[in-house]
Design a protein around this nucleic acid. Structure first.
Lengths: 212, 212
DNA sequence: TTACAGCTTGACCGTATGGTCAGCTTTTAA
DNA sequence: TTAAAAGCTGACCATACGGTCAAGCTGTAA
């Protein structure tokens, strides 16, 4: 755009094209599902010939796997909020904020992830049985400690985690439904803030971390 | 099975075949998504020739629409729990029970519904803009009254509803993830009961309907 | 018994899709 | 300057899919 056809570095070309393709793919996979997505659709959205996609990603499955792994990384990063926290108020608040931000900024990625899990996690089974399980076990331990230290009521840590996942993820996966019920308009900044505050208040109060 | 080829009534034939096809279709759509599902797969699972499916359901879209409408009916029925209730404890408890029962008994239907909404509700848009909106507005009004009557804290009714939907639906849509984290085994009767109780306690306490 | 309507199905068709490839252009490094 | 490596792409292919249809079968009602 700026410079008239400055020669691109190999590295740049690769990085840029892979990025372009991944962004397009994420959107198409989110909108149509794996089965409904076509390489042609992704290529059109990326503004590249279909054969070019196959140069960077040998198969549709490989491209899909890349998209799913990408969002999984983001998802795991949000996990860190949990660690440094001194108690449930800090930790869970930060986690809800982080997950809601993901739902807002990466709704397509969230949908792809949800779709993947819903269909039995054909490509992510390994991750789920290793990384995800470890992560979950770690947080369960943290929550258990909070309960021992009387920082919250004795709530089953796993079901609490599911509740956090479900509630935050819902704003991405069911965003269309929420939008429809919101008069066809996306949630405003204010509404997102209210959503976060409601979730935090109900859950933190519900587990006895905040005074009722 | 019982009688050796007793001649079937026309009505019976139709009802039975439609039922068989719908059951098979629900499963295949849930597992593969609309795009990934094939009429052949559904036919095989139903134990009928593919051409026979097209006799009862002209197109894949029509079959899909029937499946989605079916689950939507069930979904709406659970709504009634809300109505007769005298307060949030009764109403929300019953609703959580009903929705969790749906997640347990109709996980495939739940997934199809989730998938449909995630992909922008191409066939259900009308329902969402009429039936679902009316239903939602009605419950919002009920919750608002409960708040006025000081039966619960002033929580935003919409975000509370989303929380109920999300949390209960999660056990169907992300059932595979939950199962994986449960050591590869489905939740037991006891675990389902614990799930329900945890959700109820956290939410009802969180909205100030139960004493902390 | 018969004639008709509804049900069944193997064979078939057009199309769209994932994937391939040969030949071209551009970058790179010596 | 040059030759190899990397990137690009139009044309092509085999397959699988949704859908059709004509011919046969079966329940129904007179």
């Amino acid at each position: 755009m700026a410079e008239p056809t400055r020669p691109m570095r190999r590295q740049e070309i690769r990085r840029e094209n892979e990025k372009t393709i991944l962004v397009a793919a994420e959107k198409v996979f989110a909108e149509a599902g794996f089965g409904g997505a076509t390489m042609q659709l992704i290529a059109d959205l990326a503004g590249l010939p279909k054969a070019n996609l196959h140069y960077y990603f040998a198969t549709k499955e490989e491209l899909y796997r890349s998209v799913v792994q990408n969002i999984f990384e983001i998802w795991l990063q949000a996990a860190n909020c949990f660690d440094a926290a001194r108690g449930p108020i800090d930790g869970i608040s930060a986690y809800i904020d982080a997950k809601m931000e993901i739902s807002r900024r990466h709704p397509d990625g969230s949908k792809v992830w949800a779709s993947e899990v819903m269909h039995g996690a054909p490509v992510l089974q390994d991750y789920m049985e290793s990384t995800l399980r470890e992560w979950t076990d770690g947080r369960v331990e943290i929550i258990r400690r909070w309960i021992e230290e009387a920082k919250m009521d004795p709530v089953d840590p796993r079901h609490l985690l599911y509740m956090l996942w479900a509630t935050t993820q819902h704003y991405a996966d069911f965003g269309h439904q929420i939008e429809t019920l919101n008069g066809g308009k996306p949630l405003s900044d204010r509404q997102w803030r209210e959503a976060k505050e409601n979730i935090k208040r109900v859950i933190l109060t519900g587990i006895g971390a905040l005074p009722a």
